[in-house]
Amino acid sequence: MAASAPPAPPSTTRRRGVQPLRAAEGHSYLWRRLHSLSGIVPIGAFLIEHILSNFETWNGPVAYGKQVLFLNSLPLVRILEWVFIFIPLAFHAGYGVYIWLRGRSNVNVYPWAGNWGYYAQRITGLIAFAYIIQHVWRQRFTGVDLPHNPGMAFHKVQVELHNPWMLAIYVIAMIATCWHFAYGIWLFAAKWGITPGDRARKRFGYICAVVGTGLCIMGLASIYAVVWKYPNAPVNALPDQHSSLTLPASTSLATS
């Protein structure tokens, strides 16, 4: 290439402004696509699981305790937790912040729906990130160790949500996370070429809206259940289970 380079290009000064495409160079494609994918699997899948599990609170402290017990009884659960939840989450969040930092939102100038979506995706992502850090820290790694005391899960959350500030944070974070996830699926389909046409994107938009709204309602219902439906839950809903890892008699949904 160097041998056939054009003789003395007219402009000799270094290019100002945005650089041209670095064709076929670098690895940002891989990282960016991993980021996109990780938001769907495993993070999105985990989110659905988490909200479904939390929805057991609707059936009371015992049912919820059993669900937590069930989850903690999965084989290799600690490894699964790190490989499919913590590491992907950390990557998705970290790279997401990097993406956010490099964007130049201009929704103030061009207040169009898609542009609001772009802006909201970044804001909701940041809210979810901040929330998840404290949530994981306070619920998973400090206080009562729930993996070994699944019966105490309901009470632990109830205590947390007793603080009205915390309650507000949980509600906001629930909405933000569901929004981020639902719009994330829509973006995934658009960017990966699953829904190239305008009408396909619109149709899929309705589906994503239903999914997001459904998850959000379930999540908020779980909060309602913890705070208002079952006030004064026992500290330990499964006093005889302690840290034993026997399976519950039947799946909790069936017994409700």
Binding site: S4, A5, P6, P7, A8, P9, P10
Partner: peptide
């Protein structure tokens, strides 16, 4: 042809 070095453009001249 420009990318192959056969043509040099002087745009803005």
């Amino acid at each position: 042809h420009e990318s192959e070095g056969k043509v040099t453009k002087y745009e803005g001249w």
